[in-house]
């Protein structure tokens, strides 16, 4: 039992990270139709930024953590909006593949800049709250993992409230549903491309800050995160935030169980599992696994 719970919590933590990256992908995709290859790099920027402002683990503290997180999230959101203006905007309407390739370039540039600044070193971050791991259902879970779950829940609720209860959130949805009609009522869809990138970058940066104490941060941590985010996003059916969160968590837990219970001979292959699931889902059920749920209007 205790072992199972440990695997479960490990899977939940990975799953929450998947979900947060997947949410970023979803926000951008829903508004712009772009698949953002650089989404994981926004997570990396969030982690690196927080470490930069709060001071790396073991070193002297700089800003209080809360302030560092807020400054970082705002900064990364601004970077997201700026890069959209700079490199995505000029090629709008030139087809999804070209835009995808531009985001590949974007990912390489972000990694490159961070590589130069950090000299490819790995940095850690102090835990958000002090104290040892808690024991739940006979298994241990670190306090930082709880923070990661909390941030995921918070982001999901905030996005839900934003999209369904605020004017600008509704304008976002109008752009994704019908850009022409949105323009007729005075919403400029092109501006929402920038907002979508900023929002997605901000969400990912928050995720990065929350996971930094668990995963540590290096300049090239983004791509693997983005890949798992893709899987979460595909599992969740591409358009539903709840679906993406469920997809991400399901994937993380399944991965955690595989890593825990797979026979040793097969263990090296477990890394292929998420991608196998993703390819099968894309080919067999393009609407994602969420469509299997009885009420799919989630």
């Amino acid at each position: 039992m205790g072992e199972f719970v440990v695997f479960l919590f490990a899977g939940l933590t990975v799953g929450a990270i998947n979900a947060l990256t997947g949410l970023g992908l979803l926000i951008i995709y829903n508004v712009t139709g772009v698949i953002n290859f650089a989404q994981g790099d926004f997570v990396m920027l969030g982690a690196m930024g927080t470490i930069l402002f709060a001071g790396p683990n073991g070193g002297p503290h700089r800003l209080p953590l809360a302030v560092a997180v807020i400054v970082t999230v705002a900064g990364v959101a601004a970077i997201g909006g700026l890069v959209e203006r700079a490199v995505i905007h000029p090629r709008r309407g030139k087809g999804p593949i070209l835009l995808l390739m531009i985001t590949v370039g974007l990912s390489l540039v972000i990694e490159g800049v961070v590589l130069i600044v950090t000299s490819s070193q790995t940095y850690g971050l102090r835990n958000f709250s002090a104290g040892g791991p808690l024991t739940v259902f006979g298994g241990e879970v670190s306090r930082q993992s709880l923070w990661v779950y909390g941030v995921t829940a918070l982001v999901l609720i905030a996005l839900y409230l934003f999209f369904s209860h605020t004017r600008s959130g509704k304008a976002f949805r109008a752009c994704e549903i019908n850009p022409l009609a949105a323009r007729l009522v005075g919403i400029r869809p092109s501006r929402y491309w920038t907002y979508a990138f900023a929002l997605a970058a901000g969400v990912s940066a928050l995720a990065g800050a929350a996971i930094a104490p668990v995963t540590t941060a290096t300049y090239n941590m983004g791509l693997p995160l983005a890949l798992d985010g893709f899987v979460a996003w595909v599992l969740g059916g591409l358009v539903s935030p709840v679906g993406v969160v469920l997809g991400g968590i399901g994937l993380g837990v399944a991965q955690g169980m595989l890593d825990g219970y797979l026979p040793t001979a097969l263990l090296p292959y477990s890394g292929a599992f998420p991608f196998l699931v993703m390819v099968v889902v894309l080919v067999a059920r393009p609407g994602g696994l969420v469509q299997l749920l009885p009420n799919r209007r989630v």
Binding site: V87, V104, G105, L108, V109, E111, G112, I116
Partner: peptide, 8 residues
Amino acid sequence: VGYGVILI
């Protein structure tokens, strides 16, 4: 570093 800049 160069690849990204060149690609974009």
